[in-house]
């Protein structure tokens, strides 16, 4: 019992890592299922990164759409990432995080464009930025923000 009490901080941090691992990977799996499902639904909606040129009288109106998401990694992944830093190389734990954030942002943008009656999106741009740690804690918060934006175009129906 004494040993337990003496190493309380170690046990707490182990517990947090365990919670991070189980809850984090469950959440990630759920998120990927949702992303895949929604990507399938919006597959027919064209999005291009190029600036498209249209014939006269083809376009009825155009407007900007954007989608953004702030996503953070769990304790377990942060630990893995820190370990990875010792040797260098691919940090798989972080890759899936960025991948999820980017796909989610694009999906949100597409959904907004569909909701507002757009027919396609041109000139898609993606931006990633990290948020600094919170004001009351010096530690890094380990979260990224991804924003996707573009111009939605509505065609004349003829």
């Amino acid at each position: 019992m004494d040993i337990l009490l003496e190493n309380m901080d170690l046990i707490i941090s182990l517990g947090v890592i365990m919670i991070g691992y189980f809850a984090g990977s469950a959440a990630e799996r759920k998120h990927y299922t949702s992303i895949k499902k929604r990507e399938k639904e919006t597959l027919g909606f064209p999005v291009v990164t190029a600036e498209a040129y249209f014939a006269d009288g083809r376009v009825k109106e155009s407007f900007m759409v954007s989608g953004s998401v702030v996503i953070s990694m769990d304790y377990f992944k942060r630990l893995l990432g820190n370990l990875r830093n010792l040797f260098g190389g691919r940090v798989k734990a972080y890759e899936s995080l960025i991948d999820r954030a980017r796909r989610e942002a694009i999906l949100r943008m597409k959904e907004e464009a569909q909701m507002m009656g757009g027919d396609m999106i041109t000139n898609l741009r993606l931006d990633t930025s990290t948020l600094t740690g919170s004001a009351n804690r010096r530690s890094q918060i380990g979260s990224v923000e991804v924003i996707a934006y573009g111009t939605a175009v509505v065609f004349n129906q003829e």
Partner: peptide
């Protein structure tokens, strides 16, 4: 709330909304 959410990871809805 964000620091709590940081334990399990995932989307920080409060921040998403704030930045939007």
């Amino acid at each position: 709330m964000a620091s709590l959410k940081n334990i399990i990871g995932g989307e920080l809805k409060g921040y998403t909304q704030l930045l939007q």
